[in-house]
Simulated assay, not measured.
Amino acid sequence: MKKTITLFFLIAVIGFAFSKGPVVDKIKATINTMKTSGNTTKTAKDSVIQDPKLKLKFYKKDANASYYHDKFNGRRTASGAKFSNDGYTAAHRKFPFGTKLKVTNQASGKSIIVEINDRGPFSRGREIDLTKKGFMEIAKNKGIGVMVVTIEEIVD
């Protein structure tokens, strides 16, 4: 029962994060494959689905990632969307709004998929700002504020 609820939650989160049809179809196919092989992911925060069908374009290794402060909850982002630290979004200086990125913590090996909806970070030496939820899911040490990540763009 718990696996079913968790799998439903995972599908809902990923389905919401990816508004483009082909990417959603690839993720659904992967989830179906995982169901039939018995290799289900326990929760979204344990790991991201490693789908060999997803096309990833390497962007940067050894990038510094930080996360938003709670004071930004409810404010508008540069794209006009309302910010929530409970989502899977990110700020980057150059990627267009709506770009999907796979961000992998190099220390723990955990990954998340985020959508760019804001500009920043504005601290020198930092490449990407993640939501607090996304950051904590891949962080090895929950007491840190910056981590070294690899950034890959998801292309259609």
Rank of each mutant, 00 (worst) to 15 (best):
K94H: 10
N141P: 00
V148T: 15
T30V: 09
N85D: 12
V148C: 10
I49T: 04
L10I: 15
T36D: 12
A65C: 05
P96H: 05
K82S: 08
L54D: 03
E153W: 02
V148A: 07
I116W: 07
K133V: 06
D129L: 02
V148M: 11
V149A: 03
K45F: 14
G125K: 02
I154V: 14
A65S: 07
I128L: 08
F95K: 04
T89P: 03
K2N: 12
V146T: 10
T43C: 07
K71C: 12
D156R: 08
N64Q: 08
A17R: 11
N117M: 04
S84C: 03
S123Y: 13
A139Q: 00
K61F: 06
K82I: 15
R93A: 07
N117C: 01
L10T: 15
A107W: 07
S47H: 11
N39T: 10
K132R: 13
G109L: 07
I11F: 08
S19W: 10
Q50E: 14
F97N: 00
R119Q: 01
R75M: 11
G38V: 07
Q106V: 14
T99S: 08
T33P: 00
K100F: 13
D156H: 11
F135M: 05
Y68F: 11
K142D: 10
K140E: 12
V24I: 12
G87V: 03
G74P: 08
E152L: 02
K82L: 11
K71V: 11
S123K: 13
T36P: 01
F97M: 00
S47N: 12
D86S: 14
V149I: 10
K2C: 11
L130M: 01
T43N: 06
V24P: 00
Y88T: 13
E115G: 07
A29L: 08
R124Y: 12
S111Y: 03
G120Q: 05
V103A: 02
Q106Y: 04
F135R: 06
I14R: 13
G143Y: 08
K110S: 04
G109F: 06
Y67V: 01
S84N: 11
T89Q: 06
L56M: 03
D129R: 02
K71I: 11
L101P: 09
E127D: 13
M147D: 02
V149S: 06
I154W: 05
G143M: 06
K100I: 15
T150W: 01
F16V: 08
N117G: 02
D62E: 08
T43F: 05
E153G: 02
N141K: 05
K3Q: 15
K142W: 05
V13D: 10
